[in-house]
Design a protein around this nucleic acid. Structure first.
Lengths: 258, 258
DNA sequence: CGCATCCTTGAGGGCCATCAAAATGCGTGG
DNA sequence: CCACGCATTTTGATGGCCCTCAAGGATGCG
């Protein structure tokens, strides 16, 4: 439980931003940088009902750090909403709206969520005065792109049950990286309908896929919780290989070439 | 033909980097910045055979500007290669390997390609001394993420023929943004097998999908060329809405809020 | 003219969308 | 406490999209 201890310590010192890049490049952040980031949050808000917090095409003067809960990135089709990715606590979910000005997508909350807001003028100061922190911000947005790429491949490669298994495996790992998630699974407010949107399927088919996962003993979904009896079975079924998360894998930053 | 004239002028002055962000934020670049970028390219190379120029997990000390031709971002599955996105001239294809150190994916050439190499120590200087250029670099990697998101949605939303139509529509628009592509379509070395990899399909099914596009009069694919008789028909069929490319659309940078 | 690559077509079967309907669980208000 | 509404989950039947196996045709190059 080394990681959880680490997470607790970070959260005690930096209650709003202690999970940012935790399990990844946070180890390279100095105390001064951590304080600067923590102090950049001027306001927090807790949202208990599902709500769209960022609208495609709108201009905002702040970005949001996800402190607690889950949010989805979505794109609206003519008839329905499509999920393109999701976020867990510690993610700087719309950091890129600082550089992009208008986002191409929406950000929707799921369940109860706590956000920390960072005004863009604060971000501009950090970009100007803190080159290393600026680099970490860039890195954090590149992580999103890497996760998008992996998901593109999985959409091309996997059937619906395996896609869902992949989503479960990724959420679980990402929660663990930031000190959440437990040995047997994780808590989440995701509904089957949400999972259908996230996996590019329909509610009905997602339900059958979940049934298959249950029957295979890979994952059990009950209200507000995913139970996973056998991590290896889940990850093998999903063909999940976590390197792309840039945690402790072959892609992680470390010394030396090759 | 305002754009082409613009492209020609930029290419005369900046033969290697004149297409970078052309049709997007290049208009915000000063001559000094354009020169700095042009001079950052210390070497060019032309590759005529399909080849993997960036390998997942390897460390490089330079990044590549695509000057001529097409490249694919790919991920290797156990049995086959999966395409996750593609690039056209003017794209700084592996700029992010500067910040990510090791890339999560490969970059493979298609047909004949000319690349310009920028050493990472040059990039480091630019990041340090040229904040506006640094911001544009960040923006350029965020564009990739936006294109990934759109493609995730399209994979979830569209059938194979429409996916192919979307790929055609996007390539065409992106070529036009950088002064390539003509009124009736575009030249490309893409094979049906490449398109299958890019669309998450099989060669056989891609072939049938192309047949359908031909029969519908939406696109004609002959060796090395895509002909498109009716742009509106193509884009409607593909549900293509180019805003996500951050060219001249509702998401583009412009003055004023909302 | 032989070979490799690319393109094309047919048949069979599995995955998944859709339409239709019903069961379950939860919170609210009577 | 029960009735009710609502969201969520579940099941069945039908049909379309797309994968796979198999084979053949076209094109270009040495």
């Amino acid at each position: 439980m080394r990681k959880s201890a680490n997470a607790n310590e970070e959260l005690t010192r930096y209650p709003h931003t202690g999970r940012f890049l935790l399990g990844r490049l946070r180890r390279g952040m100095g105390d001064r940088e951590k304080r600067i980031l923590e102090n950049a949050i001027t306001e927090t808000e807790t949202i208990t009902e599902p709500r769209r917090i960022v609208h495609r095409g709108k201009v905002y003067d702040r970005s949001s750090m996800l402190i607690e809960g889950f949010v989805l990135r979505t794109l609206d089709g003519p008839e329905q909403r499509y999920g393109v990715s999701f976020h867990v606590p510690g993610d700087f979910v719309d950091l890129h709206c600082f550089a992009l000005k208008r986002l191409d997508h929406n950000i929707d909350t799921i369940g109860s969520v706590t956000l920390g807001y960072v005004p863009h003028d604060r971000l501009a100061e950090i970009m100007r005065d803190e080159p290393h922190l600026a680099r970490l911000f860039w890195f954090s947005t590149l992580l999103d792109a890497a996760m998008h790429r992996e998901w593109v491949m999985k959409l091309e490669q996997l059937t619906a049950p395996r896609r869902l298994a992949h989503i479960f495996a990724e959420i679980w790992r990402r929660l663990e990286m930031v000190g959440l998630g437990d040995a047997g699974g994780f808590d989440t407010p995701l509904t089957q309908s949400d999972l259908a949107e996230m996996s590019g399927s329909t509610t009905i088919h997602a339900n059958r896929a979940i049934k298959e996962l249950r029957e295979r003993g890979i994952a059990e979904m009950t209200r507000g919780r995913i139970d996973i009896p056998d991590r290896d079975a889940l990850e093998a079924f999903a063909k999940f290989e976590p390197d792309y998360l840039y945690g402790e894998g072959t892609l992680a930053h470390r010394e030396g070439p090759e």
